[in-house]
Each structure stands twice: as C-alpha cells, then as structure tokens.
C-alpha cells in the first residue's frame, strides 16, 4: 500500500493541491487534512503547504500554528513522523517551535519569485535521503518574508549539527543569515524550507533546465525521500 501523506489546508493555503499532486507523483497517496480538525486520519507523513494562512496576520504562520490540528501535528512530529513545512508551512513550524529561528520580511523589502538554486547540505534527513550530499537542485522560490533569522548561538548550533539542510547558491535572495534556505530538527524528521519543491515535480510544469523549458523536477526528491523512509520503517 502506498504511504499516506497528509497535506493540511489552512484558511489562506495556496499550494495544498500542488503538494497533494507532488505526493501522488512521488508514489504516495495524498490525504487532504483540515486545520480545524483534530484528526490526522492515520497518515504516515505530513506536509504543511505554502500560502498566506490567516492573511499573514500577527506574524506569518503564527495564527495557523495555533490551529486545532497543530496539537496533533506537534505530537506526531515529536514521535518521529516525517513533517515537511514549505514556505508558509516553514513559518508555521518555526512559530510552533518545532524548528528554531524565525522568518522576517525580505531584506530588500520586495516579494521575490524566481527559480532558485539550492545546495543540499544534509542528505540524511527524512526529506532529503534521495539526494546526494552537496547536490545542487533548482526549485521555485516565491515569498515576501523569507529572511531566516536566529541568534548567533542558534545559527552556530544549526551549522555545527548539520541541521542546515538547504542553502541558497550564488545569491542569498532574501537576506537569510548564512544563506540558509531550510533547516531540520535534531532528529531530522521535521524539515522546513522557504523554496517550493512541490512546484518542480513534473516535466513541463517546473523550472527551466538546460535540456528543455520548464522541465525541472528537482523537487520530487523531497517527497520520494519521505515515502521511502515510511516504507523502510513499515
């Protein structure tokens, strides 16, 4: 049976259906979950998708992090379930204290949308095991508040423990400290990143590659990694 991967929809989520599609293309069974419920429907892994939950009121992801279903998400994450937060989902994981640091408005003050090169700095997390250490991937980036911040001691610890999972290559697009694009928790089951792997999972609908326009599928590896991890654990 294909691993069941839940995708939580919040008021203002935008990329929930793209995340479901990515799960399906990676060989999993997507399960639509609702923020107002307290049930994870017995899923094996979770994705918190991108968007502008609650209009980004208070702080990005802050109100969503207090949603009913987040109690179960936090409990499952602490028990080791693979959890991925993309963009607004990353902001939720930070606000829920499942990941350290916080995201602030881009240093240049503008919303940015571009195909972004990332380096996989840790290929042993639940969401990156199908990549090679140091592999460069290209996936879309689109955010207004993607500047990763943490105090110096936290940054040093994240770097020292290999918990910087993705780093921006060539350009730091939003003023993130150490060009950090994504991090993980200590156990490596919870990963958050600002760029959008779910938008680079099918030829014809992804970033341009040297081979052909919109042919990039580098984002698929995150989803296949988690699905493999679930199958190994079964």
């Amino acid at each position: 049976m294909a691993p069941r991967v839940g995708v939580v929809t919040f008021p203002g989520s935008l990329d929930d259906r793209d995340a479901q599609r990515a799960v399906r293309l990676a060989g999993g069974e997507p399960v639509a979950l609702w923020h107002g419920s307290h049930s994870l429907e017995g899923v094996d892994a979770l994705v918190l998708p991108g968007g502008f939950s609650y209009g980004d009121y208070l702080r990005c992801g802050a109100i969503a992090s207090l949603s009913p279903i987040m109690a179960e998400v936090i409990e499952a994450a602490n028990k080791g379930m693979p959890v991925l937060g993309i963009c607004n989902g990353f902001q939720m994981l930070a606000e829920a204290h499942l990941l350290e640091g916080g995201l602030i408005r881009n240093s240049h003050g503008q919303f940015i949308c571009r195909d972004q090169v990332l380096r996989v700095e840790n290929a042993s997390t639940d969401w990156t095991s199908d990549f090679e250490q140091g592999q460069q991937i290209t996936i879309p980036l689109k955010n207004g508040e993607g500047g990763f911040m943490a105090d110096a001691a936290t940054i040093e610890r994240l770097e020292g423990e290999g918990r910087v999972v993705f780093r921006y290559v060539e350009v730091d697009p939003n003023g993130s400290l150490n060009a950090i694009a994504g991090i993980s928790n200590e156990r490596g089951n919870v990963v958050g990143l600002m760029p959008h792997p779910e938008h680079a999972v099918e030829e014809g609908f992804g970033p341009d590659t040297s081979a052909a326009m919109r042919n990039g599928t580098d984002g698929l590896g995150l989803f296949t990694s988690a699905i493999s991890r679930v199958l190994q654990a079964a």
Binding site: L58, R59, A62, E95, E100, G102, M149, D151
Partner: peptide
C-alpha cells in the same frame, strides 16, 4: 508567547 516572537521581536 503569542503577541510577539522572541526570535525576531
């Protein structure tokens, strides 16, 4: 705990 985030505010 709610109105501010001590990481950034």
């Amino acid at each position: 705990s709610v109105l501010s985030n001590s990481v950034i505010e």
